[in-house]
Amino acid sequence: MSEIPIRCTGIAVVLLKKVENQYSVLLLKRAESVLKDVWCYIGGGIDEGEKAWEAAYREVEEETGITNLSLYSANTFDRIYSIEENYIYIAPVFVGFVESDQEVNLNEEHSDYRWLSFQEAIDTVSLPGNDEVLSLIEKYFVKKEVPGYLIVGG
């Protein structure tokens, strides 16, 4: 019996900011060949010796220039099956809260960004499963009090 390997080599981060008592979600438009022109939240690899949450902070800074955020474990995962390489990629998802006046400075990985309502973000993401991640984050991090035990170091 053959098994499909599972690889956990990256992270995902959904950034939120509150504007006029409503939370907005940051989506980025990919500029590189992998998923070119796809709107998604922040994602990236985990470097050697790095914890997943450390990679989340680093990727946020690299992709957006943002260093001031409160980071939480979303306790959910991005999951993608690689057809070409026959493996399942799984990545822990983090939620980052930023100040309402936070500027975004994109690196070369992305060509554009938008702060959207949750419904707009859910309608905009195109990777199956991203909409479910956003719905879960809205339910547990916006509509409910965020549990303190989910905050991560920084």
Rank of each mutant, 00 (worst) to 15 (best):
M1F: 08
S2H: 14
S2K: 15
P5I: 02
I6G: 05
I6M: 09
R7V: 08
R7I: 13
C8F: 05
T9Q: 12
T9S: 11
T9M: 06
A12Q: 14
A12K: 15
L15H: 02
L15F: 01
K17C: 06
K18H: 03
V19W: 00
E20S: 09
N21L: 02
N21Y: 05
Q22G: 03
S24L: 15
V25P: 07
V25K: 09
L28G: 05
R30A: 05
E32D: 12
L35N: 12
D37G: 10
D37V: 04
D37Q: 14
D37C: 09
W39Y: 10
C40S: 11
C40N: 13
Y41E: 02
G45F: 09
G45I: 10
I46D: 07
D47T: 06
E48C: 04
K51D: 13
A52R: 10
A52Q: 13
W53A: 08
W53N: 12
E54V: 01
A56I: 01
A56R: 08
Y57P: 00
E59W: 07
E61F: 03
E62P: 00
E63P: 02
T64R: 03
G65D: 09
I66K: 10
I66V: 13
I66E: 12
I66L: 06
S70W: 07
L71C: 04
T76S: 05
T76A: 03
D78A: 02
I80V: 13
S82G: 07
I83L: 06
N86H: 12
Y87Q: 02
I88A: 03
P92L: 04
P92F: 03
V93K: 11
F94D: 01
F94W: 06
F94M: 02
V95A: 07
V95R: 07
G96C: 13
G96S: 15
F97S: 09
F97Y: 11
F97N: 08
V98Y: 00
V98T: 11
D101G: 10
D101C: 07
Q102V: 14
E103Y: 10
N105E: 11
E108H: 12
E108D: 13
H110E: 02
S111M: 04
S111D: 06
D112R: 02
Y113H: 13
R114V: 15
L116R: 06
L116S: 07
S117M: 08
Q119P: 01
Q119I: 03
D123S: 14
V125R: 14
L127A: 12
L127H: 15
P128E: 09
N130V: 09
E132K: 15
V133C: 05
L136V: 12
I137M: 05
I137N: 01
I137F: 02
E138L: 01
E138F: 00
E138R: 02
K139Q: 03
Y140V: 07
Y140T: 06
V142S: 00
V142C: 03
V142G: 01
K143S: 03
V146Q: 02
P147V: 00
P147L: 02
G148N: 10
I151W: 01
G153S: 08
